[in-house]
Design a protein around this nucleic acid. Sequence first.
DNA 1: TTAAGTGCAAAGGCTTTGCAGCATA
DNA 2: TATGCTGCAAAGCCTTTGCACTTAA
Lengths: 144, 144
Amino acid sequence: MSRNRNNNLMRGRPWTSQRRLLLELLRDAEGHIDAKELYRRASARDESISPATVYRSLNLFKELGLVDEIRLGKVRCYYEISGLPEHQHLVCYACGKVIEFDNPLVGRLIKAVQRAHNFNVTKAELYLEGYCPECEEKEKTRSA
Amino acid sequence: MSRNRNNNLMRGRPWTSQRRLLLELLRDAEGHIDAKELYRRASARDESISPATVYRSLNLFKELGLVDEIRLGKVRCYYEISGLPEHQHLVCYACGKVIEFDNPLVGRLIKAVQRAHNFNVTKAELYLEGYCPECEEKEKTRSA
DNA sequence: TTAAGTGCAAAGGCTTTGCAGCATA
DNA sequence: TATGCTGCAAAGCCTTTGCACTTAA
């Protein structure tokens, strides 16, 4: 069963040990992880794996719709398994903390834009940046 | 007056010819422009300007809040003058076309998140990706 | 068996940095 | 005059690519 499922996932492409490992790590990551960190974790389990394979696999996974690419904060690129419950990102400009949130307005917004521009929207990413309560407090203290 | 205004913009930092040129080009760009393109346009007017200056200036402008950094499509980084009317981006995955739109729901969404997480939100970016009407049509034709 | 994937190392882009000279304030 | 900016060139990062070897199907 797992075999069939993975064949489907890969749409006929070879199901290699590297791909299995990378997909497993992406699943375990629960949230976003960047290519560098993914390579680091993969190396820990298979020390011969190369960065090239990580990048090639991520591009393949993206193409197959297995992962979504997300850009957060300082132009870093993160990946996460597709099909996780939709969520959006709120990033603290000062400390870099990332909060994932979800709000029903996002869905309504997507539908509205979809209708207005006749676009077939396949991906939505809302990125909010600002200061978290703690950093906001520090900021105030410092300027006072 | 222009002198005072620019001194304020720069918060005491020197108002150099390069910075003046770059800010002028950013203003003329009307929308987003990436560092590479900005360098190209700057070179046309001052052939001795260096990429290093462009990057250094963009970082400074960002720091001073004069421009916003925006990530679109294939992890490219764009800049635009702050304070333009807020707008969001809709990108066609197939042809790369970028549509800027605006929707009042965005404002409501920001306020809701702001309240829910007690964040001082300073920037909001909504990125929608999908297929524009033309590419959607081609896609259908091809698979039929 | 054979098409496809992998590791390695090198090349490519974009961005940052060190340094000596130059310009703004 | 004295910070601070600039150009240049080199270094740094991250990502992609060419090639010979290996592996899944």
